[in-house]
Simulated assay, not measured.
Amino acid sequence: MKDFFMGESSPGMIDWTTMPTYNTIMSIAAGAGLVALVLFARDLLRHHTEGPVSTDGWALTFGSLGVILTLTGLHMSFTWPLAAGGFAFDNIIFGETSLGFGVLMSALAIFLAKRGDRIVASPAPLAEVARAARPLGIFIAGLGLALLAIMVAGIVYQLFAAPPQEPISGAFADWPLVEAIFMSLLFGLVGLGAVLAPLAIRSFARVSPSHGAVTTLAVPTIAKVVGALWFVAGIVFILFGAMNFYTHIGLIVNTM
Score class of each variant (00 low, 15 high):
39 L>I: 07
149 A>S: 15
254 N>T: 05
111 F>S: 09
245 F>C: 07
142 G>L: 09
2 K>E: 05
233 A>S: 11
152 V>F: 09
80 W>P: 02
145 L>A: 15
168 I>Q: 04
236 V>R: 02
149 A>G: 15
208 S>Y: 09
202 R>Q: 14
74 L>M: 13
195 V>C: 12
87 F>H: 09
55 T>P: 13
161 A>M: 03
232 V>I: 14
24 T>Y: 10
110 I>Y: 12
192 L>G: 10
93 I>S: 08
94 F>P: 03
76 M>Y: 10
145 L>H: 07
241 G>A: 08
5 F>R: 02
152 V>T: 09
48 H>D: 00
237 F>I: 07
245 F>W: 12
74 L>P: 05
45 L>E: 05
218 A>T: 13
104 L>I: 07
195 V>I: 14
71 L>N: 03
25 I>D: 08
154 G>Q: 03
253 V>I: 01
49 T>Y: 00
39 L>G: 02
15 D>I: 10
203 S>W: 08
162 A>Y: 01
172 F>I: 00
139 F>R: 02
53 V>W: 04
43 D>S: 15
238 I>Q: 10
203 S>Q: 11
236 V>P: 03
219 V>K: 15
104 L>G: 03
101 F>R: 05
202 R>L: 11
14 I>H: 01
130 A>E: 06
141 A>G: 11
249 I>E: 14
251 L>A: 01
49 T>C: 00
213 A>Y: 06
178 V>H: 01
140 I>A: 13
232 V>Y: 05
131 R>N: 06
88 A>T: 02
14 I>T: 04
79 T>Q: 10
239 L>P: 09
101 F>L: 15
165 Q>W: 05
103 V>K: 09
82 L>G: 05
16 W>E: 03
66 G>D: 04
168 I>V: 13
205 A>G: 13
134 R>Q: 13
31 G>Y: 03
182 F>V: 12
142 G>Y: 06
58 W>G: 14
134 R>E: 14
231 F>K: 02
129 V>A: 10
27 S>V: 03
168 I>C: 03
250 G>E: 07
148 L>Q: 03
80 W>R: 05
1 M>K: 04
246 Y>F: 08
51 G>E: 01
180 A>Q: 07
97 T>H: 12
139 F>I: 13
225 V>M: 04
103 V>Y: 08
28 I>T: 05
192 L>A: 15
80 W>F: 10
148 L>H: 00
218 A>D: 15
87 F>A: 13
60 L>F: 14
148 L>C: 04
7 G>P: 02
12 G>F: 14
40 F>K: 10
140 I>Q: 10
196 L>Y: 09
200 A>L: 12
50 E>Q: 02
135 P>D: 06
68 I>M: 13
50 E>C: 00
253 V>Q: 03
111 F>N: 08
181 I>C: 08
228 A>V: 11
237 F>C: 11
255 T>M: 00
5 F>E: 06
185 L>V: 15
211 H>F: 06
252 I>Q: 05
